[in-house]
Nucleic acid binder design. Structure first.
Length: 456
RNA sequence: GUGAAUGUAGCUCAGUUGGUUAGAGCACCAGAUUGUGGUUCUGGGGGUCGUGGGUUCGAACCCCAUCUUUCACCCCA
């Protein structure tokens, strides 16, 4: 008999972990709801045609594909099989795949249900996604995303509200040391004009995104290798290395972008977004304009966000941005702009765990265990149990006739704070023994008194 | 996809230059204690040393392959 194992990069979530994960899901879901977002769920699997081509070449390779049912090799072109090129064969034997993120299925949903959706449409979605990546710290093959997106409006109020939601979620989780980085694709495009990127924008963005991680020297090296001129890079790094307040950075950018229409647009969008924060009675605490911030997903076109928890060795815990043409990829004639945010709950979990920030209460189970000594008191206990539950008290009974010691040990292990002890004495008098396992206190009370004592 | 490390009891780990029957702590079970848990004491169960092959008189230890987990790169939450 082989020992069972889990597929690489997947995990079970036991009761303790689940209690904590629920706490995260609930916290995030409540914030989304408060900002007017309503829940949506979509299938774990999508047609492969829905998924491919949306995440760039790299993303396509990370898609989990699902083998067709039945004799899936039967009709495959023999020449393709003989070529032994799995890519050629893949499209013929797999027409479904596991979702890679929640944004693309959302866009698909919007296009399919356009007739009954009131714009702007705000939805949130908390579901697992799958990536055929190689697992490492903070990276799993199955993980949950908590997304909130709004489509059908260009208003930058949405961007400002995303900033507010991020701030509120982390505040509620008592994760106070974080940085919400914000940038704009048009700012990056402006930079590309300055260095004459001409077609190599993607290389440029990927390279400068790593600035704070590997330093200016390495980034320069990388860019020169990609064919950028060393001279043009000086102007670039002068901008990228700007320190100071958000206002100072944005002013410098407007200065540098006097010749760049697209650059100006990026700066004004960022200014407007930050301006809305004031009207919403919020401030720029934790918010940092981060000029090198690029983010990988190729579909972003406007503001982009990323959240980093400070003093923890962990990639970004949240990210998002505005996309202009996602629904166009599904044949929508109308141009629907959208903006969204995604919280990576598995990473947030790891951060909270590392920083010891989970509230203690997330561990509790039943409030009380009914213990007994013989057949008669067990039977009596069942009636007691039913009364406790009618009163809304989470309770359980030890289901076997067992030594009292064993029953209390069970309560102890499950961190059940109270036991009710029922023996012949209690059955006769109706005065049950209630014991507080934490303090050791014990007293005789009627069931009504106990219910009153245990009702919060 | 590229590169590296790791794997011994349920968990954390010892295990000498290759040499008798592979150990400890914690956890688990039982008893001390037949109506009182957490503490203590006593005893007990539990290992194909990741898997498969090879070298050797002899392998947990050396070699090869494979899988797992972890870390870095690429990319990403």
């Amino acid at each position: 008999m082989e020992k069972p194992t889990l597929p690489k990069g997947t995990r079970d979530f036991g009761p303790l972990v689940m209690a904590r994960r629920q706490y995260l899901f609930n916290t995030i879901g409540q914030v989304f709801h408060k900002f007017g977002f309503l829940p949506l769920q979509t299938p774990a699997m999508e047609n492969l045609s829905t998924l491919t081509g949306k995440y760039g070449e790299e993303g396509d390779q990370l898609l989990f594909k699902i083998l067709n049912s039945g004799d899936y090799l039967k009709d495959v072109d023999l020449s393709k099989l003989e070529a032994r090129n799995s890519r050629l064969v893949a499209s013929e034997i797999a027409e479904k795949g596991l979702r890679y993120d929640l944004t693309v299925p959302f866009a698909r949903y919007v296009v399919m249900n356009r007739h009954e959706i009131a714009l702007p449409f705000k939805r949130y979605q908390i579901q697992p996604v799958w990536r055929a990546d190689r697992p490492q710290k903070g990276r799993y093959r199955e993980f949950y995303q908590c997304d909130a997106d709004v489509v059908g409006t260009d208003s930058l109020i949405c961007e400002a509200e995303i900033v507010l939601m991020i701030k509120e979620v982390f505040q509620k989780l008592r994760l106070n040391d974080f940085t919400l980085k914000i940038n704009h694709r048009s700012v990056l495009d402006g930079l590309a004009e300055i260095v004459n990127a001409g077609g190599k924008e993607a290389d440029l963005y990927v390279a400068i995104d790593k600035l704070d991680k590997i330093g200016e020297e390495k980034v320069r090296e990388g860019l020169i290798q990609k064919g950028f001129e060393s001279k043009s890079l000086d102007a670039l790094f002068e901008i990228l290395n700007t320190k100071g307040s958000n206002e100072q950075k944005l002013n410098l950018l407007s200065n540098k972008f006097q010749q760049s229409e697209v650059g100006k647009k990026g700066v004004s969008d960022l200014k407007e977004t930050l301006g809305y924060l004031k009207f919403l009675n919020a401030n720029e605490q934790h918010v940092e304009v981060d000029i090198p911030l690029a983010r990988g997903l190729s579909y972003y076109t406007g503001c982009i966000f990323e959240v980093k928890v400070n003093n923890v060795q962990m990639g970004s815990v949240s990210g998002g941005g505005r996309y202009d043409n996602l629904t166009q990829a599904f044949g929508s004639k109308e141009k629907l702009s959208g903006v969204g945010i995604s919280f990576g709950i598995d990473r947030i979990y790891d951060c909270l765990d590392e920083l010891n920030l989970f509230p203690k209460e997330t561990a509790t189970s039943s409030k009380v265990l009914v213990c007994h000594f013989d057949e008669a008191s067990l039977q009596y206990g069942l009636n007691t149990l039913s009364q406790l539950r009618s009163a809304g008290i989470a309770s359980e009974i030890y289901p076997d006739l067992a030594k009292f010691k064993k029953q209390v040990e069970y309560a102890d292990k499950k961190k059940i704070p109270f036991v009710i002890i029922i023996g012949p004495e209690e059955v006769a008098s109706g005065q049950l023994s209630l014991k507080n396992l934490e303090s050791g206190e014990q007293s005789k009370q009627t069931i009504q008194q106990i219910i009153q004592a245990l009702t919060p």
